[in-house]
């Protein structure tokens, strides 16, 4: 293990009153600017409303104050002051925001490049070593990572709150975003641009690991041909994003739980009962909208072309174990 402390966060984790915990080197700068404007705003607001309340109390209508005591309608120095001073403050805030933005948007030249493909409704990550993962982005800690992103259908937006970054992912175009995570842990990925029925289910996570664990993970991903089917199934469950929507402990998420699924009778949204056997499982992976379990949204994307025949068999064997 390296020197960075391990933080076990349930994705977003505890943060301050306002923000989730900052987990990149640049995120604290964004927070600082926010607090700076926040306190300046609170001070101005209280100042303004102290004046307002004083006026309301001092000049309220009363038998002794039936008409305005003096009709003051202009004061040029005052007008200049409350034009120029806020303008100068705004210029300072603008500059601070711009400098912060330049750091966020310009990746260092030594950054590791990972390709991101977004489609309704999943995130797919392509690593330089030829590995592909779905729903979970695995990166080494304390290394700059540059994401080169494109979409296969509509506009999506990659948003990682703990890193304070967000960038639209646009069809027929490449956009980029970068970060340097400074703490080991799991962090939430949201889609931030409305993309349809599964928008709020288009979640993902970033798993930040030590450099050694990253090497190990890459090796594991590259092997697999010799694994027993049920172990392969468990690996697919964790690395291809199944775990984003399906639990293995019985709790419902975006999709039905896998626990006790095998061989059980399921009611579909059209009222029919279906037994969860090999054919049903395979169909649900390749053509998820064909049969939708009652009470769930038809938001699962197809995995056709993304899983090998052996991996699908692995999932089936894995399901059999989840009694």
């Amino acid at each position: 293990m390296n020197t960075t402390s391990i933080i076990n966060e349930s994705l977003m984790g505890k943060g301050s009153f306002w923000f989730p915990a900052a987990r990149t080197s640049l995120a604290p700068h964004t927070d600082q600017l926010y607090y700076w404007i926040l306190w300046a705003s609170i001070a101005s607001f209280i100042g303004l409303f102290m004046v307002v309340v004083y006026f309301l109390w001092k000049y309220k209508y009363s038998p002794t104050n039936k008409v305005a005591s003096k009709q003051i309608i202009d004061n040029i120095p005052l007008e200049i002051a409350w034009t120029v001073i806020p303008s100068l403050i705004c210029l300072v805030i603008f500059y601070a925001g711009y400098i912060g933005f330049l750091h966020i948007s310009l990746p260092p030249s030594n950054a590791t490049e990972i390709h991101v493909v977004a489609r309704k409704w999943m995130w797919q990550f392509d690593y330089p070593s030829g590995i592909k993962s779905i729903g979970e982005l695995v990166v080494p800690v304390n290394e700059p990572i540059k994401l080169i992103m494109t979409s296969e259908d509509v506009v999506h937006s990659l948003y990682i709150p703990n890193f304070r970054i967000k960038r639209d992912v646009i069809p027929n175009r490449y956009s980029r975003v970068w970060f340097n995570a400074n703490a080991i842990g799991n962090y939430q990925i949201f889609c931030a641009e409305f993309c349809g029925d599964g928008h709020s289910a288009m979640l993902g996570s970033v798993r930040v690991v030590s450099k050694e664990d990253y090497q190990k993970w890459q090796k594991e991903q590259n092997s697999g041909a010799d694994l027993p089917l049920d172990v392969l199934g468990e690996k697919v469950y964790n690395s291809k994003g199944c775990n984003t929507c399906h639990s293995i402990d019985g709790s419902p998420k975006t999709g039905p739980t896998w626990k006790g699924l095998w061989g059980s009778n399921h009611k579909m949204s059209d009222g029919k009962m279906v037994v969860a056997d090999e054919n049903y499982i395979k169909e649900s992976i390749l053509d998820p909208k064909a049969k939708v379990v009652a009470g769930f949204q038809p938001v699962m994307p197809t995995f056709a072309g993304l899983l090998s025949e052996r991996e699908i068999n692995g999932i089936i064997e894995y399901l059999k174990k989840l009694k």
Binding site: H29, T30, L33, Y34, I37, L38, S41, S44, F45, L48, F49, V52, C90, I93, F94, A96, G97, Y98, I99, G100, F101, H103, I104, S157, Y159, P161, R164, I165, K166, A192, E193
Partner: peptide
Amino acid sequence: LALFCIGGFTGIMLGSLSLDVYFHDT
């Protein structure tokens, strides 16, 4: 007066580039 001021102050936050990256579409 009160609500518009709060709207204005948060508008300043959203106008700053680095903060907007975080707050956009939230």
